[in-house]
């Protein structure tokens, strides 16, 4: 359990680092780790006397200030008032395109996932979209997705939104909008760059020396295991309980 806890804590702390500098981050449904990352950033900014961070956690009452119904997140993004968001995908390809629909021939293909949610829209409008997918395998990270729920780059239309980074159980990649692809930034211990090559089905840039993903320091861990998991318990009681209990 403690290895599992450490793995999650690295992901949460990395998400908080990726969000540094934003004013408002929204978190979609069923996303306890991104929600914890957003809460860690908010707590850290407050303690460091930096400008306040707003967070909107869908499905939460205490950590969500929207009053105009389900449409408000989307309107807010269109107005440029959401700086960061998280998207996942059953498949993600090397150009940053994501597939939340399924594999094989549409619609009756071999695997069907829930659907595109708001991705087709939000990917265009939110500047810092963090792709978060825990499973790091060649079946997830493919050369070309079978169905494009949301496309990362559309030169034919102006857009402010798109992928910023890709975070998995094994590694962190940056997305290079000029090159239109991913570049490996760091690998989470105990994995090696060779593990990443073996488990990634798309081509990406790899620096000569690959850093290890930074482990959260003692102050971050204290904040996480105290205030952050307490705040998280309102929306994700089971997840927060497991993390507190393990700590």
């Amino acid at each position: 359990m403690s290895a599992e806890r450490e793995r999650r804590e690295i992901l949460i702390a990395t998400i908080a680092d990726l969000l540094e500098g934003i004013r408002h981050v929204a978190v979609g449904a069923s996303s306890p780790i991104p929600a914890a990352g957003a809460m860690l950033l908010r707590a850290r900014s407050e303690l460091g006397g930096r400008p306040p961070v707003r967070i909107s956690i869908l499905g939460s009452q205490a950590h969500n200030f929207f009053t105009n119904g389900g449409i408000e997140l989307f309107d807010c993004a269109a107005q440029g008032r959401v700086d960061a968001f998280f998207l996942g995908g059953g498949q993600i390809d090397g150009h940053g395109n994501i597939n939340l629909v399924g594999t094989g021939d549409y619609p009756t293909g071999s695997v069907r996932w829930p659907g595109s949610f708001g991705s087709a829209y939000l990917y265009h409008l939110i500047p810092r979209v963090i792709l978060f997918r825990e499973e790091h395998s060649p079946r997830v990270f493919v050369p070309k997705v079978d169905f494009v729920s949301a496309r990362a780059m559309t030169p034919e239309v102006p857009r402010r939104g798109g992928p910023h980074a890709l975070l998995t159980n094994m590694a962190l990649f940056d997305f290079d909008r000029e090159a239109g692809g991913f570049a490996l930034r760091s690998v989470h211990p105990p994995f090696t760059p060779a593990d990443i090559r073996e488990n990634t089905g798309f081509a990406y840039q790899e620096p000569e020396v690959v850093r290890e993903t930074r482990r959260p320091d003692a102050a971050t861990l204290a904040l996480l295991r105290g205030r952050v998991f307490d705040e998280l318990a309102e929306t994700y009681p089971a997840f927060a309980r497991t993390m507190k209990w393990a700590a």
């Binding site: 269109a78 629909v101 939000l122 409008l125 494009v148 729920s149 949301a150 780059m153 559309t154």
Partner: peptide
Amino acid sequence: PIAGIIGSDLLNV
């Protein structure tokens, strides 16, 4: 009218 969506295969289906 609605923002975004362009580039998505949703437009094909």
